[in-house]
């Protein structure tokens, strides 16, 4: 194949990619417009909302064609996010200016700064304690997942990357669980049981 042939194929690819990108952009824009209109109404139309989401999804597929499978989807997400921010900006611009009403003030209580500082110290203390404890538990569970996948014969690269990503996700999940769960028994069962089970798996898999 000659250089001129390669150049013309390359130019054709650029044109095709641009068309896909343009259609993807339009699809995302119309999808967001449908969602914007539907969510702005008091009575929401499931058809419009469904169509909006479908068009957003379609736009990602079109971007995948335009920019490469994984990269194109990432580009589509970026473009749709920026478009959505434009819609939020438009929504803000249609609002009337703020009325200058005097607000009612509650009289400041004494030592208010101290109470604020105490709240911050409490939050720091909680996180400093909770962070590492949840981290250790998440670490054990993530290693358990890695070991399970390894024992199941999963490719080493896949089990390693699964374990690496599982660690921060499980860590965050445990922090959230500790902060919002009310059931102490369930909390204890998960926070003690899951890491113990993982450690047992690790021991069994690495005799």
């Amino acid at each position: 194949m000659g250089i001129s042939d390669r150049a013309s194929i390359s130019n054709m690819n650029i044109v095709i990619d641009s068309v896909f990108a343009l259609v993807g952009l339009s699809s995302g824009m119309i999808g967001l417009l449908l969602l914007y209109n539907s969510w702005s109404q008091t009575k929401r139309s499931p058809v419009l909302i469904g169509s909006g989401w479908a068009l957003l999804l379609l736009s990602l597929f079109l971007w995948a064609y335009a920019g490469g499978a994984d990269r194109g989807i990432a580009l589509g997400l970026i473009v749709n996010s920026l478009l959505a921010l434009c819609f939020v900006g438009y929504s803000a611009s249609t609002q009337p200016p703020r009325k200058q009403k005097p607000a009612r003030e509650k009289s400041p209580k004494q030592k208010s700064d101290q109470t604020g500082q105490a709240e911050w110290v409490k939050a720091f203390g909680y996180i400093i304690f909770l962070g590492p404890v949840c981290g250790v538990i998440a670490f054990a569970i993530a290693m358990g997942i890695y070991q399970t996948l390894d024992m199941a014969g999963t490719e080493k690269a896949n089990s390693l990357v699964s374990g690496l990503f599982a660690f921060p996700i499980i860590w965050a999940a445990i922090v959230i669980f500790c902060l919002i769960s009310r059931c102490k028994h369930l909390k204890m069962a998960i926070l003690v049981g899951a890491p113990l089970f993982s450690v047992a798996l690790l021991l069994a898999g690495n005799k």
Partner: peptide
């Protein structure tokens, strides 16, 4: 990441209000 997740959890109407910006 935990902040992002709790933010979404704390806002069940996240999509309904997705464009609301009450500047006034």
């Amino acid at each position: 990441f935990a902040m992002s997740v709790t933010g979404f959890m704390a806002h069940p109407n996240i999509f309904k209000d997705a464009f609301a910006f009450r500047r006034s």
